[in-house]
Amino acid sequence: MSVVALLSVAPVIEDSMAPEVAKAVDALEDFDVSYETTPMGTILEADEIEELMAAATAAHRAVDADRVSTFLKIDDKRTRDHDAAEKVEAVERELGREPRGERS
């Protein structure tokens, strides 16, 4: 895959955002993207930027709120194919370990 992105879609509400965020994540199923949800956003991967943008737009529209905040950060490396796992593996090689820490 050649396009990697971080997507965060959140309703601007006082109650739990989880039900609306779940709608946004579920909307990704209709697109040719792979994704992994994290506590701070969802990592998207697609072969084409158009598919990634369509998926992000659908996720944004899936949230039912008077106000929706969406953040999309795209890494479109055009000189070669890469994926999110390769990015993490490169950091692991430099660290000599997994890039994780445990909270005390």
Rank of each mutant, 00 (worst) to 15 (best):
Y35V: 01
A58S: 14
D64E: 15
D15G: 13
M40S: 03
V9T: 11
A62L: 12
D30S: 15
D66Y: 12
A5M: 14
H60N: 14
T57Q: 10
S69Q: 08
V21T: 02
D66I: 06
V68I: 08
F31M: 04
A22E: 10
A18F: 15
S2W: 00
A18Y: 12
S2K: 09
T42E: 01
F71Q: 13
V68C: 07
A5S: 13
A46S: 12
E20N: 13
A55T: 05
T37E: 09
G41S: 13
S69L: 14
D26Q: 15
S8H: 13
A5H: 06
I13V: 15
P11C: 05
L28K: 10
V33L: 03
V3E: 05
I49A: 04
V63M: 07
M40R: 06
V25I: 15
H60G: 04
M17G: 00
M53W: 11
A5R: 08
H60W: 02
D26K: 12
L28F: 05
V4L: 08
A55N: 07
D15P: 02
E14P: 11
Y35K: 06
D15L: 05
T42D: 09
L44D: 03
L6N: 07
A59Y: 04
V12P: 01
V12G: 01
I74M: 07
D32R: 03
I49Y: 09
D26R: 12
A65M: 02
A46P: 06
D47Q: 02
R61A: 13
M1V: 05
D15Y: 10
A24K: 07
L44P: 01
L28P: 09
R61L: 13
S2P: 03
M53Y: 15
V25E: 05
A59I: 06
